[in-house]
Design a protein around this nucleic acid. Structure first.
Length: 348
DNA sequence: CACGCGTGGTT
DNA sequence: TAACCAAGCGT
């Protein structure tokens, strides 16, 4: 049990936050449903990117019961373009958990909140502190950066030891009288002042006690072990359009874009020539033209996609998982950005 | 517990 | 440009 003085941190941060914190729509009167929605949307996502999505979800699903009654397809469609689609699938699962397990009312403790799918330690702490005044400190990327700099901590934040130490420090610093504002203040400082690059130390309320600032180590903190390298993948999409419409199929399995729709896909270990594709498809298929190539960069993959214009053999039984869709049907299903952009360019 | 999961902004 | 990073989570 540390007895060092930690009060100054919150005492400097809270007034700054109340004057400079952004007026985000879920602040003010914090309704757990709206806060939960914002927290899930903002996982690994910037406020600027997530804000419009939050508004769409609140408009379409004003309460957790409304969301619980939705289909996965509709939730994915509303989520389209935001990435990390497991968040959308888990969002629906969690909404149904709240209705079934908690009679439609969000639970108010960390232990109960964390039972919800897609709600981990961070999100449970955020909801518990912001909506229910519980003394649970949040630790996100902002908190790692702020604490590493202010306290001059060189332990890698992406290590088991680091996660443990930063969590303990954040909990020690937490203002128990204002846990929600305190948590949001640290994150807001990290998002707007104590940023990864272009740090605004001159505007920082704790500059006077910041070890990294005093020792000129702002750019060296926080320490990270490193990121996993990316792999290249080659996607050959089959553009098949008949009088029945455009053929799409839904992605399944553990791969990317689970639950989203795309044209029939042949993945290869290297770029494919028209002849090679023809061999893969088999007799009767016509490879009419090689469409544009699109480079799509994900966090751990680089996808090089080619859209091939092909015609299946007459009277050939196509894969039953391939669905012929008219324009309205295509617009109604969720597609990855890569496919969304192709559809747009192709005028579909 | 190390890894995989999207997209977009910034440098 | 390639690299880095963002209000993390599930497995």
């Amino acid at each position: 049990m540390s007895t060092r003085n930690t009060r100054w941190f919150s005492q400097a941060l809270l007034p700054w936050y109340r004057e400079h914190g952004r007026a985000l729509p879920w602040r003010g009167k914090p309704d757990p449903y709206r806060v939960w929605l914002s927290e899930v949307i903002l996982q690994q996502t910037r406020v600027d990117q997530g804000l419009a999505y939050w508004q769409r979800f609140v408009d379409r699903f004003p309460g957790v019961q409304d969301l619980a009654a939705a289909t996965e397809g509709e939730v994915l469609k509303l989520w389209q373009g935001l990435g990390y689609y497991s968040r959308a699938r888990n969002l629906l699962v969690a909404a149904r958990q709240v209705v079934r397990d908690f009679r439609g009312t969000f639970p108010g403790t960390h232990a109960e909140l964390i039972t919800l799918k897609g709600v981990g330690d961070y999100t449970a702490s955020a909801i518990a502190s912001i909506c229910f005044g519980q003394p649970d400190a949040v630790v996100d990327g902002n908190v790692y950066r702020v604490l590493a700099r202010v306290f001059g901590i060189e332990i890698p934040v992406d290590s088991t030891e680091g996660r443990k130490r930063f969590k303990a420090l954040a909990q020690e610093l937490l203002d128990h009288d204002h846990p929600g504002d305190h948590n949001q203040a640290v994150m807001e400082l990290g998002a707007t002042v104590c940023t990864p690059k272009n740090v605004a130390c001159l505007l920082c309320p704790v500059q006077g006690r910041c070890i990294a600032f005093a020792s000129g180590r702002i750019d060296a903190l926080p320490v990270k072990k490193g990121v996993a390298k990316t792999r290249d993948r080659y996607f050959n999409y089959l553009h098949i359009r008949t009088s029945n419409g455009l053929y799409l199929r839904q992605r399944t399995g553990k791969d990317i874009w689970q639950g989203l729709w795309e044209p029939p896909l042949i993945e290869s270990g290297a770029p494919l020539t028209a002849k090679k594709l023809q061999e893969r498809l088999g007799p009767g298929w016509q490879v009419r033209s090689r469409g544009e190539e699109a480079k799509h960069v994900l966090s751990h993959q680089v996808i090089r996609a080619v859209f091939w214009d092909v015609t299946p053999p007459k009277r050939e039984k196509l894969d039953p998982g391939w669905k012929a869709m008219d324009a309205a049907a295509v617009r109604a299903v969720a597609v990855p950005r890569l496919i969304e952009q192709w559809l747009k360019r192709a005028g579909i």
